[in-house]
Each structure stands twice: as C-alpha cells, then as structure tokens.
Amino acid sequence: MEITVGLEPWSEGDFWLLLRKNEPAMTEHLGGPETRAKLEDRHRRYLALSAREPAAGRMFRVVADGESVGSVGFWERVWQDEEVYEAGWGILPEFQGRGLAAEAARALIAHAGVHGTRRHLHAFPAVDHPASAAVCRAAGFVLRGEIQFEYPPGQWHASGDWRAVLGGGDGA
C-alpha cells in the first residue's frame, strides 16, 4: 500500500513536533537535546521563515496519510562562496524506515525548484549517520565528498556534502 506524503507549511500549532523531535534518539547527530527556550526560539524562526516569500526558504510539517510524522525545510546560506539552500528533515521514530523522509525530501526539492531562486540545495548529514545519507541518495542528492561541518555552533564533525540541482539536472 502506497503512503501519500504531503508538506504543510509550519504553523503556530506545530510546536509539539519540535518537542517530540528533541528526544535523544532524534538529536543524537545534531548535538543532543535543546532547552525549551532554544526550541521556542527555533519555533519562532520556523514561523518567520514560513511567513517570508517562498524563495527565502520554508519549513513544513510532513504529513503521511493525514498524520503528522515529522518536518522538512530549506533555508538560505552561503556555501563555498555560492548562495545556496540548505535542507534538513526529521521523521518521528515510530514512522521511520518507511521511506517518508525521502519522499518528503523529494517534495522539498520540487518545491524549492519551483519557488526558489537558487540553483543548488545542500544537505550535510554526519558521515556516521547512514540513515540520513540513504535519504539523500533516495531523494536525488549527489554526494560531493566528505567535509568538516559545524553544527551546532562550536561543534565540528565529518559530514557528507550532498547536493541537488534545483529545477532539473543530475545533481552534479
């Protein structure tokens, strides 16, 4: 049975999702759980991002067959002297392993390709996080190599530099 995955713009009522995604199992590769104050700040940033013009980026709640299962989004950044978008996602543990993150990432690539102004979308999963690398591969990102990436601020780790070409192309 095929699952229908949709993206709903981040809204005021989605804070609960940040609380759920703040569990240790969900933050192991992101520097660990954050304080409630940091989550509230993140929620405000997600709301502000989604209130701006779509080309600046957007955060979404991922919905599968009518049920909220996680989040996905993209935002502006400069990477290696190029203005690009960066992508991030997280699917709640009880929904993982079903291809939902890859489907959401494909939908995000399509959205950014239509509404965005930048040519490339990057994702930077830690090299010791094979599930995120698998999502990148399944969603159509191409691995450009291993890099040192800072996230959260002050914490450097080995990451893959995955890139998707927006508006068509082969990701190279």
Rank of each mutant, 00 (worst) to 15 (best):
P33I: 01
R118L: 02
G99S: 10
A172I: 06
R42S: 07
F141W: 06
E53F: 04
E83T: 09
E28A: 15
R119D: 14
A134W: 06
F149R: 09
A51D: 13
Q80P: 00
E82C: 01
P24F: 05
H115F: 11
R119Y: 05
P33K: 14
H43W: 07
S71Q: 05
H129I: 08
A110N: 13
E103I: 01
Y46G: 01
V5R: 12
A126T: 09
D41R: 13
F141G: 09
G168M: 11
P130I: 10
M26G: 01
Y85S: 03
R36W: 03
A101F: 02
P153V: 14
E83V: 06
W16I: 00
S159T: 12
W156N: 09
L19A: 10
R163K: 10
H157D: 15
H111E: 10
P54K: 14
R36P: 00
G140V: 02
L100V: 12
F124H: 11
G160I: 03
H129F: 03
G31N: 12
W89I: 14
W79Y: 11
W89Q: 08
L121A: 05
A164D: 13
I109A: 07
A172Y: 13
R118T: 06
A25N: 08
G99T: 04
G57D: 04
V5F: 02
P54H: 15
D128S: 03
G6L: 14
L18R: 07
A37T: 11
R61V: 00
E94S: 04
G171Y: 03
H29M: 07
A101D: 03
A37Y: 07
R144E: 13
M26R: 06
Q96W: 02
A64K: 02
W89K: 13
H122L: 03
A110V: 15
T117K: 13
R61T: 03
V69I: 10
W162R: 09
A131D: 02
T117Q: 15
R144M: 04
E53V: 11
A56G: 07
A107Y: 13
D65M: 01
A110Q: 08
G169K: 15
V62I: 08
L166N: 12
V69N: 08
R98W: 01
G140S: 06
G90P: 00
